[in-house]
Design a protein around this nucleic acid. Structure first.
Lengths: 130, 130
DNA sequence: CTATTAGTTCGTAAGTTCCGAACAATGAAC
DNA sequence: GTTCATTGTTCGGAACTTACGAACTAATAG
C-alpha cells in the first residue's frame, strides 16, 4: 500500500476543491468530518442518509477529498483518522469553504421543506380518497 | 434546434454550480462574461489564453454553464448574448460566487508569480552558461 | 437564390467513476 | 509465532461523461 498523499497547501487548487465538493456523497462526508468534534474514520460513512455506500467507493471519495487538500487522513491503528484542513484553506482562500458549506446548508433546508410539502399534499390526497 | 433551457432559480443546485466552475475553461468563460460590461457572444471565447477551443467543445461548455444556472443565453440575430445570473444567484446562495471568483483570482495571481520566478531563474541560468 | 457567420447536434474515441472481488495492514486472541 | 476480525486500498471491467470533427440549423447579407 503506497503511503497517502497530501498536497502542500500551496499546491491546492480551486478546481480541485470545487470538483471534490460537487458530489453529494463527498459533501456529506466533508460536512460530517467538519462538524464532528473529533477525527472521523471512513467506516462512519458506510451509511449516508439511509443509503449504503460500498466501501471501495467510499475509499475513492476519501482519496478525492484528500488529494484536493480538503482533509488530512492519518492511520491510527487499524483505522483512519480524518480531519479537515479548514484553517490552512481559510488562509489560502478566505471565505471559500464557509460560503460553500453555507450554500449547501441553504439547499438542504430547502429540500427538507419541499419534502414536507410533498408529504403533506400526499396525505391530503389519501384522506380525500378514503 | 431545440430551444435553450434555463433552470428556474429555485432549481439551481450547489453541486451544479461547483461542477461547472471546477473546469478552467468554463471559469475563464464565466469570468469573461461576468467582468464584461455588455453581453458576450460564444465566439469571443474561441481563444482563451492563447489556446484554441474547438467550437463544439465551447458550445458544450456554454451549455453546462447555462444548465447550472450560472448564465443566461439569448439569441440575438445570428449570435448569442450571454449574461450572468449573478444577482439571482447572490440572493439564493449569498457570498458563494464572490468567494469562488475571489479564490480563482488568488490562484491566478499566484500562478503569475510562479511563472515570473521561473522565468527569472531561467534567465539567470542562461547568462551563467554564456 | 447562394454565401457567410454563429452555434448546435451527432457519433465516436478517450477519459472518469462506480463497485465487487481480491489484497494489505494492523491489533487481538490463542 | 499463527490465525482471525476489522479497516481500508487496489484492481479490473462495466457504465457513465467529456472532447472534438463532421454534419447540421438558423439568421442575415448580397
Amino acid at each position: 500500500m503506497r503511503p497517502l498523499h497530501h498536497p502542500a497547501i500551496g499546491d491546492v487548487t480551486v478546481e480541485g476543491i470545487l470538483h471534490a465538493l460537487s458530489e453529494p456523497v463527498r459533501v456529506a462526508i466533508y460536512f460530517g468530518i467538519a462538524s464532528a468534534d473529533c477525527a472521523q474514520s471512513c467506516s462512519n460513512f458506510l451509511k449516508i442518509d439511509h443509503r449504503e455506500i460500498p466501501k471501495s467507493t467510499l475509499s475513492q471519495h476519501f482519496k478525492v477529498l484528500r488529494e484536493a487538500g480538503l482533509i488530512r487522513s492519518e492511520r491510527l491503528g487499524v483505522e483512519m483518522h480524518n480531519t479537515t484542513r479548514c484553517l490552512e484553506l481559510e488562509e489560502r482562500f478566505p471565505g471559500l469553504l464557509k460560503s460553500i458549506m453555507n450554500a449547501h446548508r441553504v439547499q438542504l433546508e430547502e429540500q427538507a421543506t419541499r419534502a414536507r410539502r410533498a408529504k403533506r399534499s400526499q396525505n391530503a390526497r389519501a384522506s380525500k380518497a378514503a
